[in-house]
Structure formats: structure tokens, C-alpha cells
Amino acid sequence: MLHVLRLTYTASESDAAPHVPGHVAFLERHHAAGTFLLSGQTVPTEDGGVVLAAGGLDADAVRRLTDEDPFVQAGVARYDIATVTPGRVHPALKELLADGGGKTS
């Protein structure tokens, strides 16, 4: 199972700018823990970003995790969450998904 986290700005990029360092620290912490497998800005960048989160977390735990993002806490962004149970998986990803998608925090 994977979770696709779609970050959407609810305020302007300039309103979000002061919270970027905290948001980056949030991402780095969860990448280091193995909870986040991929994160990045969408194109165009003013739309927001996407995070792929490892399985092993239920929907409530994922929501609590996204609520910790400084962007969310400041009210400048929100997350929409889609949980995916992979049906077909590229061989390069099979090992990642075999243990529930990595570590959880």
C-alpha cells in the first residue's frame, strides 16, 4: 500500500514562503525515517507538490502526519490523500513494497 499526498496551496506562494524552511525540515525528517519515498513540486510550481508515502500507515495516521506540516499548520496549504493498493508493480519497486513500503515514523 502507498499513499499519494497531493499538496495544494490555499494561499499565495509569497504567503507560504516564510514556512518553506519548516516544510523542508518536515520532508527531510520523513524521508530520513523512510516514510516518504518521493517528494517534489508540481509543474507549474504554484500549484503545490506531491509526496509518495510508504505503506504501513492507515489513513488516520497519514492525516495526522500531514497535519504536522508547517504549511498546513500555517493555513497556507492542504493535503488530499489517495491510498493505493498496487496491483502491478515494476520490479525496481517490489522490494520497497514487500515490507509495507519502508519504515514508518
Rank of each mutant, 00 (worst) to 15 (best):
Q73P: 11
H90V: 03
V72T: 06
A74V: 11
P70M: 01
V24T: 13
V89T: 15
P21Q: 00
E28N: 14
R88D: 08
V20R: 14
L93D: 11
E46T: 08
A16V: 02
A92E: 15
H19W: 08
G34F: 02
A32F: 04
G87K: 05
V51Y: 05
G49E: 07
A33H: 03
H23P: 13
T104H: 08
L38T: 12
G34C: 05
A82Q: 11
V51F: 12
Y79N: 11
H3G: 09
V51W: 03
G100T: 08
R78Y: 01
H3L: 09
P86M: 00
D99P: 10
V76K: 05
P86R: 01
P44D: 04
A11H: 09
D99Y: 00
V76R: 05
L37T: 10
L38I: 13
H19I: 02
V84P: 03
P21C: 00
H90A: 13
T45M: 10
G101T: 07
S14T: 13
S105M: 06
T85W: 06
A98I: 03
F26Q: 10
A98Q: 07
D58V: 14
T85A: 14
L37Y: 00
G101P: 13
L2C: 08
L65S: 07
V4H: 06
D58Q: 12
R6D: 09
K94Y: 00
A77Q: 08
G34K: 01
L27A: 09
I81K: 07
G48H: 04
V4M: 14
V72K: 01
D69C: 09
A11C: 06
Q41H: 07
T35W: 08
T104D: 01
A11P: 14
H90S: 13
A25W: 05
T85H: 08
V84K: 05
L27N: 15
T8Q: 08
T35S: 14
D15I: 03
S12D: 12
T85R: 12
T8F: 01
E95M: 03
T66A: 10
L97P: 15
T8V: 12
T66S: 07
P21S: 03
G101R: 02
Q73R: 15
E28A: 09
E68N: 05
E95L: 06
D80V: 05
A53K: 06
R6P: 06
S39L: 08
P21W: 03
H90G: 09
S14F: 00
F36K: 03
G49W: 01
F71K: 08
G22F: 04
A33T: 09
M1C: 10
A33Y: 11
A33F: 04
R88H: 13
G75D: 01
D67A: 15
D47Y: 04
R29H: 13
E95K: 05
A32W: 02
G87R: 07
A25T: 14
S39H: 04
